[in-house]
Structure formats: C-alpha cells, structure tokens
C-alpha cells in the first residue's frame, strides 16, 4: 500500500493540476485546428467533384474512389473496366517500403548490436555517427545519393577504374535506387530502437543458454532475438511507415517508371493538371493504411503490457 501516498515528490507530480488545462490548451488548439480539422476537410474533399482547373466543385461524388478501381473512359460514360494503374502504384509502394525495411534490418541489426556491445565510453561516439546523417537535410541526402549512383557518377567511375565492371551500372531510375534511397533516409530509425533494446538485454541470459549447450547462433535465434523483438518491430514500423508515403527518394531516384504513392499524390496538386478529390482520396487511403499498421502495433503493445 506504500505506493498510494506519502512518497517523496508525490505532491509535485500534480503541482500544476489547477492550471493544466491552460498549459495543454495551446497544443490542443494548434494541432486540433491545423491538423485534425485539415484532415477532416481532406476527407470531405475526397467526396467532392473535381474542378478542371484544380480545386473542387461542392457536389457529392464517389468518383475519386471509383477511379482507383475502374476505368470509365475519358468522359466517364463507357462501361467500367478494371483499372490496375493505381492499384499497382499502391502495391509497388508497399513492396518498395517492405524491401527498404528489410534492407535497414539486415544492415541495421548487426550495427545496433555491435554498438550496444561496445564499452560505454565508445558507444556514444558510434551512436553519434549513426545519428548525424539523420540530422542532415533529407533532400541533401537524397541528392547526394543521386549524385553518387548516377550513370556517370563517382560510383560507376570508381568501379570502372578498378575494373570490376566494364559498362556503367544502371542504378539510377531503378527500383533498387528507390530502395537504396529509402534505406538511406530512414536507417537511423531502425538502428536506434534496436540499439535501445539490445543495450537493455542482459547478456547473462546468453551465458545461461551457452551454459546449457546452446551454440552462438542458436542463442541469437532462440534467446536474444525473442528478447529484443519489441525493438526490432518498433524499428521496422518506424522505417516502413514513412517509406510508404515517401516522396523525395522515389521522385529523385526512381524516375517516372517507379512511381510511388507520394508522387501520385503530389501530381494531383501540381498546377492545373491535378485532381484534388482524387489526391485527397489517395491521401485518405495512405493515411488509413498507416493507421492500420499503427493500430496493429498499438494493440500488440497493449497485449504485451497486459500479459
């Protein structure tokens, strides 16, 4: 019963209770008015009719969502045919984001593990090295990657100079370039949570397993990985979610063939050629996908907490 009261510092934890509404109100107002309301407005727009010069006509329509699945011809009067263009873009986005996540995991896990097992004094330096690129402007990073891997870029020059290849590699404007770009954008998001969970991992567990005749890789698989799984899952979500809606990497590295959701949405709001309701609908679908992933994750978390 000791936890109920009388502990030192207890009264301080509610010292600001009388004015807490005033303290939190600015946040409520800012995010509520400039994010929640806009998302609501966007939802409304996705059910409106497109205006040809950008913008909308206030008339209810399901056309924006219909367009994802059916092709009704240029004037919308032909019998509906199944339309695969947009479904393909969404599917490609999911696949690209998943591959980028896998790349981050393959490189990020050993890195995080290696850093977490360094002496405390050098750990901070390694972590610093991993986080510095995250602080560098995302556009600058993506442009740098584009510069490095382009056809006559330093990478190809270097590889040709060493004689590894005779013809320049076509990396730019491929799926791989996009994956590389996404990997480069979000790698720290994978390393940091895994690092945090490996750092908390008690290596006595590994020793206990070794003592019970488990080999190194068995220990990794059966003891360490299950223990640090929450960190791995958090890392995967932190990479997957932003990758799904990424714009810069697909746009700068992927070229026109490798369209992802981000580029599709962006195109709908560019100049007069766009289709605002369609862009709003695509955004809603992307948002729903992300929320589903996050809800799934949150439910897992609460199940774990309850167990």
């Amino acid at each position: 019963m000791a936890g109920i009261g009388g502990k030192s510092g207890e009264s301080a934890s509610s010292a600001f209770a009388p004015i807490r509404a005033w303290l939190i109100a600015p946040t409520w107002l800012m995010i509520g008015f400039f994010l929640v309301v806009p998302v609501g407005t966007m939802l409304v727009y996705s059910f409106l009719t497109k205006e040809f010069r950008g913008g909308v006509i206030w008339e209810f329509s399901l056309a924006a969502y219909d367009r994802f699945i059916f092709d009704r011809g240029l004037f919308g009067d032909e019998p509906p045919k199944l339309e695969l263009t947009y479904i393909t873009i969404f599917a490609r986005s999911i696949v690209q984001a998943a591959i980028a996540t896998a790349l981050c995991l393959i490189i990020g896990f050993p890195t995080a593990f290696y850093i977490a097992t360094r002496p405390v004094s050098t750990r901070a330096i390694w972590l610093f090295l991993v986080t510095v690129p995250y602080w560098v402007n995302l556009l600058v990073r993506t442009v740098s990657m584009k510069f490095l891997v382009r056809e006559s870029g330093p990478l190809n020059t270097f590889l040709q100079w060493t004689g590894v290849i005779s013809e320049p590699l076509q990396i730019i404007n491929t799926d791989f370039a996009v994956q590389l770009g996404l990997f480069y954008s979000y790698l720290p998001f994978m390393v940091l949570p895994i690092y945090a969970s490996v750092e908390r991992y008690d290596f006595a567990l590994s020793e206990a397993a070794a003592d019970l005749y488990a080999g190194k890789w068995t220990i990794l698989r059966k003891v360490l990985l299950p223990t640090v799984k929450p960190g791995i899952i958090a890392g995967c979500i932190l990479v997957f979610v932003p990758s799904l809606g990424a714009f810069l990497a697909p746009d700068l590295l992927g070229g026109a063939k490798n369209f992802m959701i981000g580029s599709l949405i962006e195109e709908q709001f560019k100049g007069n050629a766009g289709n605002w309701p369609f862009g709003a609908a695509a955004s809603m679908i992307l948002l729903s996908m992300v929320l589903i992933v996050l809800l799934f994750y949150a439910r897992r978390q609460s199940v774990r907490a309850g167990a």
Partner: peptide
Amino acid sequence: SFALISLPLMVPEIVTAVATLIFFS
C-alpha cells in the same frame, strides 16, 4: 492529449501536406 501531440508524427508527411493545403484553400 498525448495521442494528439504525437499525431503529427503518425500522419505521413505528405498527408499532412495535402490536408493543410486543402484546409488553407
């Protein structure tokens, strides 16, 4: 309140961008 504070982190940036554009317009 906590969910609201972390909302900008959860909504994909491009969705925030679209929503804000539509709202201001």
